[in-house]
């Protein structure tokens, strides 16, 4: 029987222990529930991508993607989000190998700052585009662009708020079981956002800049 239950007591995402017997059953079901949410979120993003692809050329004589996208800001945003994903990996590792709350907190702060940097750059891009007349009401193309990329930005913003809350939880309760499960879920959320961004920079930014 032990041979059957052992592998099932692991969940996708960095487990708190290499030994599946040490992963508590409720941790596993909590994380599984969060995966269900992430996948429903992925389906929503997929629909937004599908709609975006169908209105690629519906610019109604207004600005086009190639006019508005800037190569350097797409690279920097990608680099920042990728780095924040890596630093959150360090949060997960500090937690799993019980490095203490100081290490966990330090990496959360670093991840927060890099993530905030990403959001600041994206907001700056949006403001520049608005000044150029590339607003959501200008064309079907920009309506879809702002819904798709704005939705990702909103998710990143939610992730940053969640990090602040986790900082408070960590300071008040320390790295106990409940805090750890929440940090695992936040990690999955954050890495998931980076996966969505890979599709955004490929399908939206790079496709728009190809000429």
């Amino acid at each position: 029987m032990a041979g059957v239950t052992e592998p099932e007591l692991r969940h996708a995402g960095l487990n708190l222990s290499d030994d599946p017997r040490e992963v508590r059953e409720h941790v596993e079901s909590d994380v599984f529930g969060f995966w269900v949410f992430l996948m429903s979120d992925a389906v929503m993003f997929a629909c937004l991508f599908a709609v975006y692809a169908t209105v690629r050329h519906a610019t109604a004589g207004g600005p086009t993607a190639a006019d508005e996208f800037k190569f350097h800001s797409a690279i920097w945003e990608t680099g920042l989000l990728l780095t924040s994903s890596f630093t959150y990996g360090m949060v997960s590792i500090s937690m799993k190998h019980t490095r203490g709350r100081l290490w966990i907190a330090a990496f959360i702060v670093v991840t927060f700052c890099v993530g905030a940097g990403f959001l600041k750059m994206e907001a700056h891009d949006f403001v520049t585009m608005f000044h150029d007349g590339a607003t959501p009401e200008r064309s079907g193309y920009f309506s879809c662009f702002f819904v798709l990329v704005g939705m990702h930005g909103f998710h990143v913003f939610s992730g940053l708020v969640w990090m602040i809350l986790m900082g408070i939880q960590l300071a008040v309760f320390g790295p106990d079981e409940r805090t750890k499960v929440n940090l695992i879920r936040l990690g999955l959320f954050w890495h998931f956002l980076d996966v969505i961004w890979v599709v955004i920079f490929s399908v939206v930014y790079l496709q728009g800049l190809i000429r």
């Binding site: 592998p7 099932e8 996708a12 995402g13 599984f32």
Partner: peptide
């Protein structure tokens, strides 16, 4: 390819855990 890399290295999804329902969900 990059999505697969992210899934494998950051989200730690592996085929070895195929007994799990996570993989079927994904």
């Amino acid at each position: 390819i990059q999505i697969v890399v992210h899934m494998r290295c950051f989200l730690h999804i592996s085929l070895k855990q195929s007994a799990r329902s996570d993989l079927q969900l994904i």
